[in-house]
């Protein structure tokens, strides 16, 4: 029953975000600010994770390819597909759910308990739209770039690991990452990313926006936001993959 009530409240929250818009000139600087706050500040973090994940993927693929009849370029090919199809869009989205999601939930939760959201409402401003819509737009715009960066750096990390350990020479790795490349895989990866970005921002914003109480509840909202987002990303990952790749 609680699940249905919460889902209903989430849908009403979405409705309030996409209704009674403020002036357009209010949103544009806020979207730019949010891109900087939520997206640009994640570049270093995403880069660091991607390089190491790419390296680990390459080493694991090599570890599992014991058959000497299989060509070594398979390592590059498998790493590329793993990174494009799953590791970058899903894993990085899960990581961003923790970083961006907790930021959104805690900042909105703090605004709620310190009555800043009430202050906006008293001024006649649709607080849900004013506060959350720029975050949704910003994350849906910037996350695809972060994922493309993650794929690129993951491949670089894989190449470095293959080279340093000597399990996959540069020529073979480059051949592998170009072999039978399917451009739709990138589209699939970006579609997933955009859907995950929407889930991250709206679910965490909902948890923060509906915080009731004090600082303890802000912490709980932040944790709930990240947990619910992660679960939804995993579930939607399955359904999107079934729809687009089956």
């Amino acid at each position: 029953m609680d699940f249905l009530i919460t889902t209903g409240r989430y849908i009403l929250f979405l409705k309030s975000i996409f209704s009674r818009f403020e002036k357009r000139k209010v949103y544009i600087p806020k979207i730019i600010h949010e891109i900087n706050e939520l997206g640009m500040s994640s570049i270093g973090f995403v880069s660091f994770i991607s390089i190491f994940v790419g390296a680990v993927v390459t080493l694991q693929v090599a570890y599992n390819l014991e058959n000497p009849l299989l060509p070594t370029y398979i390592i590059g090919l498998s790493s590329r597909d793993s990174l494009i199809l799953e590791f970058s869009p899903t894993m990085i989205s899960l990581v961003l759910a923790g970083k961006i999601g907790s930021n959104i939930a805690s900042s909105l939760g703090t605004m709620r308990v310190t009555e800043q959201i009430d202050a906006l409402e008293v001024m006649g401003i649709n607080s849900a739209s004013y506060l959350v819509l720029p975050k949704i737009c910003a994350v849906m715009l910037i996350n695809p770039f972060l994922i493309i960066l993650s794929i690129a750096l993951g491949i670089v990390g894989g190449w470095m690991a293959g080279n340093i350990t000597g399990i996959c020479p540069t020529e073979d790795f480059l051949l592998g990452i170009q072999y039978q490349f399917i451009p739709f895989n990138i589209a699939y990866s970006l579609i997933k990313t955009i859907i995950f970005a929407f889930i991250i921002t709206t679910v965490c914003a909902f948890c923060g926006y509906t915080t009731n109480g004090g600082s303890l509840e802000v912490g709980k909202s932040s944790t709930n936001g990240v947990v619910y987002t992660s679960i939804l990303i995993i579930i939607f990952n399955y359904f999107i993959t079934s729809l687009l790749l089956s």
Partner: peptide
């Protein structure tokens, strides 16, 4: 309706207990 409330809300000022300034 909410859009008509907005006109009245423009005529309202509020000082909250914790000031509620945008930090």
């Amino acid at each position: 309706p909410e859009y008509e409330k907005k006109d009245i809300r423009k005529e309202i000022g509020m000082v909250f207990q914790g000031s509620a300034l945008f930090d």
